[in-house]
């Protein structure tokens, strides 16, 4: 059986909000090391890979592997019934067809319980090889979100160029064009505002901004984001969690 407790329901609410726009139904695999999810969006442009290590829970127990087949929007609907600071417990018996969620407000002596029906989901998995990326950029998650939001007013696509001078975001549409360039920098006072670039060769890739905007909804999970890119390959975008990560693999536009 699975029994996993979080001190604040907001932790799971934020994670679900960061992935729900891209995913419909998917399996969450639970074992003694934690919870994991890998799922493709239906257009096969973004893959979401979530890892929640058992250390990230205040209590965690999973004696044997459990697969939770869930509709992510149904999970989001139920989580809306939890207050952000409620203690949240996930529970599922072996071979059960439901996930039990309890939301507990210890001060108000309130306990709410919801049973979410589980499904058998025949899911496709992608084999992602270990890759050395040509460019790795660590930057503020909020700054990335803001930059992409600004450029989405111009075009449906953004081009990202990374070289030793920095990282440049640009877009061009009917009304004109725009770009934002960030140089590598170290901000001693606010470390999350630093921009760190590791590069083996310069890279330029273009991406759909609507999908990118959905990905950056994970900005509430982490102050920084790690972008990894290699020419002609999907990008890897990672938001670190206290024990785990939300990672996206994002297919670029195909250049001629």
């Amino acid at each position: 059986m699975l029994e996993a407790k979080l001190d604040a329901a907001s932790q799971l609410k934020k994670i679900v909000e960061a992935i729900r726009d891209m995913l419909g139904e998917c399996n969450i695999e639970c074992n003694e090391t934690g919870l994991a999810l890998q799922s493709l969006d239906k257009s096969h442009i973004v893959l979401v890979s979530l890892l929640l290590g058992s250390d990230g829970f205040s209590e965690y127990r999973c004696d044997r592997g459990v697969t939770l087949g869930l509709n992510i929007n149904s999970l989001a609907t139920v989580l809306r019934c939890a207050n952000n600071d409620d203690i949240l417990t996930l529970r599922s018996e072996d071979r059960a067809n439901e996930l039990i969620l309890t939301f507990e407000d210890s001060k108000a002596d309130r306990i709410s319980e919801f049973n979410l029906r589980l499904m058998d989901i025949d899911q496709e998995y992608l084999a992602i090889p270990e890759t050395e990326y040509a460019a790795t950029v660590v930057m503020s998650a909020a700054v990335l979100q803001r930059t992409l939001r600004d450029l989405s007013a111009l075009s449906e696509a953004v081009t990202i160029e990374i070289d030793k001078e920095g990282i440049r975001f640009s877009a061009e549409g009917d009304l004109g064009k725009g770009s934002t360039h960030f140089k590598p920098c170290v901000d001693m006072e606010n470390a999350e505002n630093s921009i760190n670039i590791t590069l083996s060769e310069p890279v330029s890739l273009s991406f759909n901004l609507q999908y990118f905007s959905n990905i950056t909804k994970a900005s509430s999970l982490s102050s920084t984001v790690t972008l990894q890119m290699t020419a002609g390959m999907p990008a890897q975008i990672e938001y670190k969690l206290p024990s785990g990560h939300v990672r996206y693999y994002f297919a670029p536009k195909i250049e001629d």
Binding site: I45, L126, A157
Partner: peptide
Amino acid sequence: VAPQGRLTDFFKVS
């Protein structure tokens, strides 16, 4: 406008 790539063009489905 450049066509959109698919992850299944890059990675194997298992």
